[in-house]
Every structure is written in C-alpha cells, then in structure tokens.
Design a protein around this nucleic acid. Sequence first.
DNA 1: CAGTGGTCTAGACCACCAT
DNA 2: TGGTGGTCTAGACCACTGC
Lengths: 235, 235
Amino acid sequence: MSESFQEKIYVSIRDDIIKGKYQVGDMLPSENAVAKIFGSARMTVRNAMIRLIDEGYIFSIASKGYFVKEKKFNKYTIEFNESRVLDLEVDDVKLISLNIIKPDVDLAYHLRMPSDSKIVAIKRLLFVNGEKAVYDEKFIPYYTGIPIDESQINYATIPEIISNKESQFTINKKLSIKVIQSDTKVTGILGLNSLTNVFRVEQSFLDQEDNPVGWSRMTFRMEFFRIKGKVILNK
Amino acid sequence: MSESFQEKIYVSIRDDIIKGKYQVGDMLPSENAVAKIFGSARMTVRNAMIRLIDEGYIFSIASKGYFVKEKKFNKYTIEFNESRVLDLEVDDVKLISLNIIKPDVDLAYHLRMPSDSKIVAIKRLLFVNGEKAVYDEKFIPYYTGIPIDESQINYATIPEIISNKESQFTINKKLSIKVIQSDTKVTGILGLNSLTNVFRVEQSFLDQEDNPVGWSRMTFRMEFFRIKGKVILNK
DNA sequence: CAGTGGTCTAGACCACCAT
DNA sequence: TGGTGGTCTAGACCACTGC
C-alpha cells in the first residue's frame, strides 16, 4: 500500500523544517490551511502534527498555532540498573549483612525517617570477572510485609523488594554519580591497597508523591566504571 | 470547566493499571468496548489511549489490542553540554591551538576520514572556579565554509560550528564516559602532579545518515566530575 | 467470520487570542 | 470578530488477527 495521507503531511512539514523553510520559532500554517493544501480532513492533519510534536520538531500553543521548536543537544539517555551494572556483567553476588537498623544522619535525610524508626539495611558485594567490583548498600524503611529473608533478598532490586507494598508503576528514581575518596571501610571491603578514588552512585526511590521508599549507595572501583549514552528527543 | 471526556478515560484506565486491575501483559478492553462503557465516540477513546502510550503505560498491536507495558527502571536522562559541563559552571576558556591537521588513528576511525584528508583541530582549556578543570579537544572535517577564525570559534560548540553546512535538526550525538590513566601531555596541560586517573568524555556528532560530522574528547580532572539523572519514560 | 486497531471524513462547539 | 488549536461525534473502509 502507498504512503498514508498523514505520513505525506508529516514528511512534507518535517522536511520543510530540516531544509530551513520554517526556522526555529516560526509558526506553521494552520491545521485548516494544511488540510486545504493537501485536500484532507482536519483530523488527518492533526495526526501528522501530533507526530511532529512527538518527534520533537514542533510544539503547539492553543488558540495560536504550531511553532518550530529549538533543538536541544544536551540530554542523553543512560542505562543504570541494580543487577546489571552499567556496561558490566555481574557474575557473583555475596550478601555481607542483612540487618534492621536505626537511621544515621544520611539515612534520616534521604529516607526522611526519624531517629527511632526502623530501617532494613542490605549490604552486598558484587563481583565482575571474579573480581570485587562494587559494594552495594540498600536501605528500605521497615514495614511488615517486606521479606527479610536472605533467599528472597539476595539478588532483588529495591522495586522488587517493596513491590508488595507499592505497585511498580508508582516508583520513580533519581540518580547521582560522583567521585569520592574511599574510606577505610570501603577500602577493606573492595580490597583496595590504600585510600583511593572510587565512584559513588546514589539512587533515591520515590513513590508518586515523591516520598522516599528506598535509598541505595553503590561504591565502584574505578576500573569498573563506564557509561554510554545517546541523545534523546527534544521533549 | 470540568474534566474532559478523554481525561476521564485516561485517568480511569491509568488508575486501573496502577491499582493492578490490569497487570503487565494484560490486554485492555477494545476501543469500542471502552467507548460503549463511557458513552463516547471511538476517537475520544483513541486520544486517551494515545496519551497512555505516550506516558509509557501501554502499547498497541494493530488488529489485536492494547496491552499493559512492563515498566523499565533502568533508563535515566542526564544532561551534558559542551559549554556548561555537567553540573559545573565554566568561568573561563583558553584557546590552546587551532590547526588544520591530518587524522591520526583515532580520528581516522571516529570521523571515517582517510589519511590524506584535512581536519580542523580545536584545543581548549576550561576553567572552573579559576582552576584548570577540563581539556577539550574538538575535531571537525575541514570543508570550505567552516569558520577557522579564533573569535568565532572560541566558545562555539560543534553543532554551532558546522551549522552553516548542516541544519541543526540533522545532528545527532553519542556519548561515552570512562576513566583512564592520564598521559604526560594531559598531565601537563591540566597541571596534575603525576600520572593519575582522569575522566574521558567522548562525543560523536552524526548527521541523519549516521555519518560523522565531528568528534570531541574532553578530559576532566576527577574533582570536577558529577552527574545527576532522573528516570525517563518507558519508551 | 467477527473483531481489532489504523486511517480518514465532514461536520460541530468551545475557549482563547489578536486585532 | 474571525481564526486558532482542543475536544468530540457518528459514521466509514482497510488490513490484519484469531477462531
């Protein structure tokens, strides 16, 4: 079958933008004008416009029109996942400890929990190619219903652990990556020779109202760090 | 004015997904069924469905139906931009050199240029809080039309430099971040005491057919590295 | 075969905007 | 006041799916 009508309209306007016929900030012809030009219904034009919005070429202002969007170059997508760490394949996981603790200052801040509350603390060591690569600490507010059983928790991610309480669709995450000087504890666990630089990847897990439901802190040996990213759309 | 019809349908189905009435992989009621339930036209239901797709809750298969999508947790957005480096404010830029060179092995590979071709090489030093922080090297295939004038090039980004030749809408980027041991050249330029770990951020600039139109390599001192990210939608 | 989503039509009313 | 995009209707035909 031949190209659909909305495809023709989409391609035509997109190419006019790429070729510079419409410049950033310019208003496009109205839906009715385009419909007239192409001899189609207005809803068909709308579908093409929706696609142009989706692809990041234009935006709309109600009662005014469609406008060419400025292209932003500074947003990348990266993947980060608790079990498959960046580009690395984790080939072994060792559970170091599993405790119920009271929050220290960091936890009180990140989980917004008072000093007398209970928190599940899971500490694990991840191996890549047989070498100690990442020290992983997870902290989850303790509610009945959370499994605090080694067999269930060893490989689990925070969303999986708390999924009894929260639907997977309610959880959001934030991430922060920086370099810090390793302290003696981390040096010992990762088997580093002396105080040295390590990566700190912190993730906050939030519910739909942005209340913290978990916090994780992963400490990487330098050699095991690598990120790749691609530009994402202009949204 | 009250909630629109498509808003009601969107919220109703979204909440059914969040509450678990529809589980991952489940098929939703058909457009006609939903239209009947809500007493609306099919196009109104479609608009609500399009929004659910856009928000990452569902996907559609033609002639089959709409299905609840698995939520992926591992995609983050980060911002990276040549003039505002990660979270840092660059307060000074010093142009080290601006030459036309022939490609070395790295450049021949990344720019796909033969050994006898001409490449514009721009090398700069970026300062943060008055300190040497980043060594920035940019490489662009030399075509007539590219300004090779210091005043024009000092603060420019690659997309800006090549925008005479290519529309801004044709450029894509890829990014790679890793840690390397600094060589003596970088050590000297960044004023480091000895060989030490540094960040390497490489960006490839591509046109719409994925042909390279530029390549940049930025070398960061450790202390000036920090990334923040947010989860993005399920696309 | 009946049902599905994808495409498309030819209308309609609305709130909002610029003049 | 006339034009805009946003919402909505009540139809239609299509290719494709699963039975």
